[in-house]
């Protein structure tokens, strides 16, 4: 038996559904962004959820202490590409 959607398709659809659902009641949403791999996936899902609009919330980099330099470089690039703050 062949299933049409793979497990990654289903996880993706669920995450996108959740992000869009938040927009119904949220007044001022924000996405916490750590530049780790989980954040990278979450940001990618947000871009998919709201395309062709940019994600309707800013990214908040919890910048309380030192981070590795390489993380800042990727963060700035991703923010520019997504059209987010």
């Amino acid at each position: 038996m062949i299933d049409t959607l793979t497990h990654l398709d289903r996880l993706e659809a669920e995450s996108i559904h959740i992000m869009r659902e938040v927009m119904a009641d949220a007044v001022k949403p924000v996405m916490l962004y750590s530049v780790g791999k989980d954040s990278a996936v979450m940001l990618h899902l947000a871009r998919k959820a709201f395309y062709p609009s940019p994600p309707p919330f800013p990214l908040l980099h919890v910048d309380t202490t030192w981070k590795f330099r390489a993380m800042y470089e990727l963060r700035d690039r991703m923010a520019a590409e997504s059209g987010m703050e």
Partner: peptide, 29 residues
């Protein structure tokens, strides 16, 4: 509210999805 949209993903799912979607990640990995 804190919302966790990737609650049901495992570490392996994350890596497989990064590979499938070509998502850029920090070189530190």
């Amino acid at each position: 509210i804190r919302v966790f949209p990737i609650s049901n993903w495992t570490e392996l799912d994350i890596w497989q999805y990064i590979a499938r979607e070509n998502i850029p990640i920090v070189p530190l990995y």
